[in-house]
């Protein structure tokens, strides 16, 4: 896909910074940038290879597009090279800056853009840290699924793994919408209990926000004449 190369009018509007054109470009390349940021190792430091994790993805993604949509960047793009390649270069630098600002990589970490090409290409394979993380997470998923009965495991597969809608999942399983919802509620409870037992979540978290009664009580205390 190369939206800007194929549509000269869009390219002109993009260069002028028209919001409609920027919106089209953003929507066309948002997924590409997110996937690129998530899989690409952007720096090498004492802690090993670093890439953007889920926590920093939004910040790096936005920073990439802010840089790409600046007037100078818009005017510099020649409309000939694939825009995705152009975005990749901006995304790498934005990722390094976001990771540095968040303290995830040391100031001494070297951006892989500054390393030889051969080394950069070699870095596309999963790092040892990521392999360990994947193994740990995969093991957790397997243990969770293994603890479910066959019917619930099938439901978990359709909803969590395959990402089917409730309606589609219900059709596959031969369940009414209400039946599916009931089973899914149990499945979610099982998931929460499992993560609590594994120490991934906090036990009192579902009740952590104040109740309506507590809110009203505090309001009455602070503002006796205030009627919400």
């Amino acid at each position: 896909m190369s939206l800007l190369r194929e549509d000269p009018l869009l390219l002109e509007a993009f260069r002028r910074g028209e919001p409609g054109a920027l919106t089209r470009v953003y929507r066309a390349y948002s997924g590409h940038v997110a996937r690129f940021l998530s899989r690409t190792y952007v720096s090498r430091g004492p802690g090993g290879l670093a890439r953007v994790g889920p926590l920093d993805l939004e910040a790096a993604h936005q920073e990439t597009f802010v840089r790409a949509f600046r007037e100078q960047a818009r005017l510099t793009y020649d409309g000939v090279r694939p825009y995705s390649i152009w975005l990749n270069a901006l995304a790498r630098q934005a990722a390094v800056d976001v990771l540095r600002a968040a303290g995830r990589i040391a100031r001494e970490a070297v951006a892989l853009d500054d390393t030889p090409t051969a080394e950069r290409l070699a870095s596309n394979a999963p790092s040892p840290e990521d392999r360990a993380l994947e193994a740990e997470t995969r093991e957790l998923v397997h243990r969770f699924l293994a603890g479910l009965d066959e019917a619930t495991r099938r439901l978990a597969d359709l909803r969590f793994v395959q990402g089917l809608s409730q309606e589609r999942a219900g059709l596959v399983l031969g369940l009414s919408r209400q039946e599916l919802r009931t089973r899914e509620t149990k499945l979610r409870r099982a998931m929460t209990d499992f993560l609590l037992n594994e120490g991934w979540l906090t036990a009192d978290s579902p009740d952590a926000l104040p109740s309506a009664a507590a809110t009203a009580a505090v309001l009455a205390l602070l503002f006796p004449l205030f009627v919400p």
């Binding site: 996937r35 899989r39 993805l57 999963p126 990521d130 994947e134 997470t137 995969r138 969590f160 993560l195």
Partner: peptide, 16 residues
Amino acid sequence: VMNLRRMFASDTVTVP
């Protein structure tokens, strides 16, 4: 949590 969801969705933590 998000890595868990990624693992469910695509069996890897490097794909959103």
